[in-house]
Design a protein around this nucleic acid. Structure first.
Length: 482
RNA sequence: CGGGGUGUAGCUCAGUUCGGUAGAGCGCUCGGUUUGGGACCGAGAGGCUUCGGCGGUUCGAAUCCGCCCACCCCGACCA
């Protein structure tokens, strides 16, 4: 492809957009802020879905589907919820050519309509817990959009659970946060920090919000999934009550948790390089691409035959494999093309390999000759490939973890230092924090950095808040965020 | 919503200053030579009289004027 990808160092956000479009993950739609998810991008989403859905089922959840349209009055029932979401609602006022008696919100999230259903379904403590997830689209009228990271419409899953006690609901909230972290780390190879959101950053209507925060290639943070303890806020708003074992009427305790197509943006910005995408093998739609190389007709026949055998062997071993037998482009073109698309392992088979009964393996995470292994025996190659895929998966996680470590700054003593480090180095600023919400607002205004989370794992012990100078045990991570 | 920018071939854009009847590169199609790191040569198709839309000025508008629309960038905003 003659089109070039803008180098990351030149313009990170153009690099991102170039990768998304040239790797054919997504395209702009005719409507502002909307995107078309192309087959390659959707295949990636399907693999994300599969990895999460399996984990949801393993933790006892079932899938269901609730409607796209929500009566406006529902949204208005929970005070914080309406003030948080009203500005970004898409509202349907007409249907069938007539003005509707009550406008319908296109769901920005489904706590309200699901709360309405739960109020009808839940009567007794024996009905609890309710553990439901749905896969769907939601719409939020965002001012400024970016492919995958923030679009007016996006795909996600939203889990909604109801419990008899606060303890149980909190346990569920943290369990699902752990599920997200497990998925991010082991499937997406994205090291994430589990933490709690500050009051300023929490979900509209939640008691507590938890998040997994990832660091992107430019040092910015990406909120990659959230899990909320909703207390009894929605139970009271929607009258979700049950009779407990003492025959007393109680409000349920609810949670909600979501992870969206934004994760795709996170994968791109965690692993990608100037050649384009690098996909973690567990999620890659194509794990191995076979590029056959030939000159003569005879070589062509032999090479394609060998490629076919290798493909069959890999497919039988459960590897997602594709043979690129296009005749109109050269092998060199194909190498670059598949590197741009992030395929983790490439297998080259040429005339020399056919005579020796070998193949060449190249790993995407190490560019050029360094990542190539020659003379790999063709017999039993599936085992070698599977080992290499696992190696690439581990290497990606390790590289991202080291990058995050190198760009996480500690020991910041005062606000001046804070500003200096943020401006010069960027990344995560891990600090002791005893400030107020107003302090947080001021810092955001002056530096654009926000509290990404209070990490759940803290080994620092008590220390002095860099902003207020007060002693505190609380640790916060500040960063610029998407 | 404020500031800036752009709408011309599938894509990237030139042509607008100073009105004269639409171009280039890439891509695409066909043929041939190529193929172990982004190949080359030749021929060709492609713009509903058409340049985002509507209206105006003019013998004549992609070009000048007015209004509108869309998208992009920067802000404000944003689980």
């Amino acid at each position: 492809m003659a089109e070039q990808i803008t180098p990351r160092s030149v313009d990170y956000s153009r690099w991102y957009t170039d990768v998304v479009r040239q790797a054919e993950l997504a395209d702009y739609a005719p409507v502002k802020g909307c995107m078309i998810i192309r087959p390659y991008g959707y295949a990636l989403w399907e693999n994300i879905k599969a990895g999460l859905d399996r984990r949801f089922k393993e933790t006892g959840h079932v899938n269901a589907y609730f409607p796209l349209f929500i009566p406006m009055s529902f949204i208005e029932k929970e005070a914080e919820h309406v003030s948080g979401f009203a500005p970004e609602l898409a509202v349907v006022t007409h249907g069938g050519g007539k003005r509707l008696e009550e406008p319908l919100a296109v769901r920005p999230t489904s706590e309200t309509i699901i709360g309405h259903a739960y109020a009808q379904w839940i009567r007794s403590y024996r009905d609890l817990p309710v553990l439901i997830n749905q896969w769907c689209n939601v719409v939020r009228w965002e001012m400024r959009t970016r492919l995958f990271l923030r679009t007016s419409e996006f795909l996600w899953q939203e889990g909604h659970t109801a419990h008899a006690t606060a303890e149980e609901a909190i346990e569920e909230t943290l369990r699902m946060l752990g599920v997200y972290a497990d998925f991010a780390i082991n499937d997406a190879a994205i090291p994430v920090i589990q933490g709690k959101k500050s009051e300023r950053e929490k979900f509209a209507g939640a008691v507590d919000s938890y998040t997994i925060e990832a660091m992107m290639g430019n040092g910015w943070a990406l909120q990659s999934g959230t899990s909320h303890f909703l207390g009894q806020n929605f139970a009271r708003a929607f009258d979700i009550k049950f009779l407990d074992q003492n025959n007393e009427l109680q409000y349920v305790w609810t949670t909600s948790w979501g992870l969206s197509t934004r994760m795709i943006g996170g994968i791109i910005m965690t692993h990608g390089d100037d050649q384009g995408l690098i996909l973690p093998p567990v999620l890659a739609p194509i794990q191995v691409v076979i590029v056959p190389i030939w000159r003569s007709e005879e070589e062509r026949t032999n090479v394609l035959e060998a490629a076919g055998r290798a493909k069959a062997q890999l497919a039988a071993a459960g590897v997602r494999v594709k043979v690129d037998d296009r005749e109109e482009v050269s092998p060199g073109f194909k190498f670059n093309d598949w590197e741009m698309r992030g395929v983790p392992v490439r297998m080259e088979i040429g005339p020399r390999d056919v005579t020796r009964n070998t193949v060449v393996l190249a790993r995407r995470d190490r560019p050029g000759k360094e990542g190539k292994t020659f003379d790999v025996p063709a017999d039993g190659v599936a085992e070698a490939v599977k080992a290499l895929l696992a190696e690439v998966q581990a290497a990606l996680l390790q590289r991202a973890t080291e990058f995050r470590q190198a760009n996480t700054h500690t020991g910041i003593r005062n606000y001046e230092e804070f500003k200096e480090v943020l401006a010069e180095k960027g990344g995560f600023l891990r600090v002791h924090w005893a400030g107020t919400g107003e302090d947080e607002d001021r810092i955001k205004e002056e530096t654009k950095a926000t509290i990404r989370c209070y990490p759940l794992e803290v080994e620092e012990g008590p220390g002095r808040c860099f902003y207020t100078g007060r002693e505190t045990e609380r640790v916060a991570i500040f960063a610029r965020a998407y």
